[in-house]
Amino acid sequence: MTAPILRVEDLHVRFSMSGGSLFGSSRHMLHAVNGVTFSLAKGECLSIVGESGCGKTTTALTILGLQQPTEGTISYRGQPFTGPNAPTRMQRAKAVQMVFQDPYASLNPRQTVRKSLSAPLRLHGITAASEIEARIEVMLKNVGLTPEQANRYPHEFSGGQRQRIGIARALILEPEIVVLDEPVSALDLSIRAQIINLLLDLKEQLSLSYLMISHDLSVVEHMSDRVLVMYFGEVVESGGWQQIFQTPAHPYTRRLIAAIPNVDDRISTPPNPKSRDLIVLKNAEFGTDTRVTPDVFRPPSQSKLIEIAEQHWVRISSV
């Protein structure tokens, strides 16, 4: 594994929620992301999994610069990505791009594919018509579309084709990191595999790094090199995909994996009997009772990440 190109250190995002009545206001802080630390290496696919509202999207938005962190730093190739020396939107655009979940809402209905792809190039100083044309042609071929389709509007394409256009738009500026926000969850099951394979091919071909946000663990298992499990703003477990899927340690991770529907599993069995033997920690030691919903308005309880195997971290209570 090469040196990390993106480092996220002790990231906190808190939202101020003001409420109350005419007689006295109350201010709550919503703790969306609590001390998330991870790094992303070149050519790697790191997945953040967790339920809705666990802070995975907020983490991604912070990396994309659409959300300011309350605390913590993000650095890209040693350069700060947050704080007073943060790059401008223009500078950031060449480093990180994003593929959206909903292919129907992510393309401007009034712009042709050509316009959607050429405008960012022009904005970034590529003005020669021949070069723009050549790059659009190459990019459309890369994502499995034909150059003739460039003159069409988004509504003339199917969901899978639109997602291909979305991927082309994300890659047209040749970024190093691509954030994939549930890239296939809005697609037909029959199309999912095509898009997943396309993403994997492009990753190899253009040596991209992916940061994937998902709650679809079957996609995560197929695509990721490493997995980060988030639960109510905190990383509860992280490790290589084999470690997470074969020897899950944290009770929340186990429940997530147990929830993957399995057509072969007609008799209900525990998700992975082997994992129980390997992990010596007892449920109570994790400090997180996953049956009780944590209060997002309270600072998180005392806990820490410990390394239970090489590069396999899990959160336990430190009280």
Binding site: L64, G65, L66, T88, R89, M90, Q91, R92, A93, K94, V96, Q97, M98, F100, Q101, D102, A105, S106, L107, N108, A119, P120, L123, H124, G166, R169, A170, L173
Partner: peptide
């Protein structure tokens, strides 16, 4: 909408 977010990520200014 996704395409407005995408435009931000692509580096478009607010006015654009």
């Amino acid at each position: 909408q996704g395409y407005v977010q995408a435009a931000k990520i692509l580096g478009y200014g607010d006015m654009r």
